[in-house]
Design a protein around this nucleic acid. Structure first.
Lengths: 108, 108
DNA sequence: TCAATGGTTAGCTATATGGCTAAATAGCTA
DNA sequence: TAGCTATTTAGCCATATAGCTAACCATTGA
């Protein structure tokens, strides 16, 4: 919890990974489908996906011989939105957080 | 505009820089005052500040022989909040953006 | 069991990053 | 001008990052 968001911000530092997250907003995609959207090699995309997964920003689901990746919106919203709330709370509003600390979010 | 937020996300990738931004939320600070909060050398902090400045996340103001740094909240909110709005709009709300598209923000 | 497809892991290279110390610059004050 | 404080710039070093190709699992289907 303390500094655990570091992996998230590190993951967001790369433009390809940010684009992957954006692409996943429309719905889950296979690794191959994701790779086909970029001009870089499959293995490189695979590594990007593993970084996103390690950061908790995506989840994977295996079906037959392909792997579907999907966005973990809560994770992104909580980490990044949490940071924004700490640095410029006047400009951003987090919608009620779901999950582990939903009961603490009693503020107006 | 296009991919100009890259410098912002790159700047946010480092924990020291995120902490500096957070510290600046309380008000402007001199480079020395900022440096004294960390266990790393002054020159290193100076470089972090130049990266934040290049990203447009902080502004500097010279007074006598010290330099005061201050947070540029709009920049942070627009870049990062803009990304969140694109990836997980259901979870985050951007309060009215000031500046270039303020007239489009007719919401309450 | 073999081959084909979809992905990942290994190993390599080049560049970027972040930290340090030493030296330079900026702005006072004597 | 000299000297002092505040901060940045210049080099240097070690590690991290991102890309590539080649090789290795995993799953399905003949």
């Amino acid at each position: 919890m303390t500094d655990e968001s570091a992996t998230v911000f590190r993951a967001l530092a790369d433009a390809t990974r940010r684009q992957i997250l954006q692409d996943l907003h429309a719905g889950e995609l296979t690794a191959g489908a994701i790779a086909s959207r970029f001009a870089i090699s499959g293995p490189s995309i695979s590594r990007h996906l593993s970084i996103l997964k390690a950061a908790g920003l995506v989840a994977e689901r295996r079906e037959a011989n392909r792997i579907f990746y999907s966005l973990v919106e809560d994770r992104l919203a909580n980490c990044v939105g949490g940071f924004l709330s700490a640095v410029c709370p006047e400009q951003v509003v987090l919608r009620r957080r779901r999950g582990r600390d939903s009961r603490k979010a009693g503020a107006s």
